[in-house]
Computed example of a mutant assay.
Amino acid sequence: MNDALRFSQADLGNALAQCAGYVAASPWGSPATLFALVPTAVLAQQAPGVVDPDDDSVLSPVVQESGDVDLETLLTTVSWPEAVVGCAIVNEITVLPPEAETTLDDAFEPFLADPDAADAAALDAAHAHPERREARLIAGVLRTGQRLALLSLRATPDDEPGIESDLRTHPSLAPNVLDALASTF
């Protein structure tokens, strides 16, 4: 789609912020949410009642029903029509401080012969770590190669008000998730 070439990194960021806003209304503990990213002009043309006439966003996220399918299966089986110029996912994760790496290594090393057991041990260690933080990872890609991942930390009683509305990013945030999303095109 030639129009996809006109989408900027900022357009992707704005669409991901919309995804984050949509999921913010969901309770913590909700399953991952997958979104198709569609040019707002195309969506307005094909489904005029869906788009607010005052919506000036370039891309519109459209929630995809995924049922009870796990995230890995979902990302390996989804395919998109040409009108979809990108996709995004919002998934809850546990964030640990860098110094927790040793704790995780110690937890899963005895199980390296069994990858499932090693993953389970690492998850248990992460969930038991006293400095863990729950967060929502918002990751998205466009067909043209733009990629972006954002992080929204769950507020704790010690946090300043509004922490959950803060979106953070880093160039090396969630490369595997971004690769998995890109592989759906």
Rank of each mutant, 00 (worst) to 15 (best):
D3V: 15
D3Q: 14
A4G: 12
R6C: 12
F7P: 06
F7R: 06
S8E: 06
Q9L: 14
Q9N: 11
L12Y: 01
G13E: 13
G13V: 10
A15C: 04
L16R: 09
L16F: 09
L16M: 04
L16P: 00
A20W: 09
A20F: 02
S26V: 06
P27L: 00
A32D: 12
L37A: 01
L37H: 03
V38R: 01
L43D: 01
A44C: 04
S57I: 01
E65R: 15
S66L: 14
G67F: 07
D68N: 07
L71D: 11
L71F: 13
L74C: 14
L74K: 10
T77M: 07
T77D: 08
S79L: 07
E82W: 10
V85Y: 08
V95I: 09
L96H: 04
L96I: 06
P98A: 08
T103S: 06
F108I: 04
F108S: 06
P110Y: 06
F111D: 03
D114S: 03
A117M: 05
A118D: 01
A121N: 06
A122V: 09
L123D: 14
R136H: 12
L137A: 09
I138R: 03
R143Y: 12
R143K: 13
Q146E: 15
R147H: 10
L150H: 07
L150W: 08
L151G: 00
A155F: 02
T156Y: 02
T156C: 00
D158C: 02
D158F: 05
G162M: 01
S165K: 10
L167K: 05
L167M: 03
R168Q: 15
R168V: 12
P171Q: 01
S172C: 06
V177M: 15
D179Y: 13
D179T: 14
A180P: 12
S183L: 13
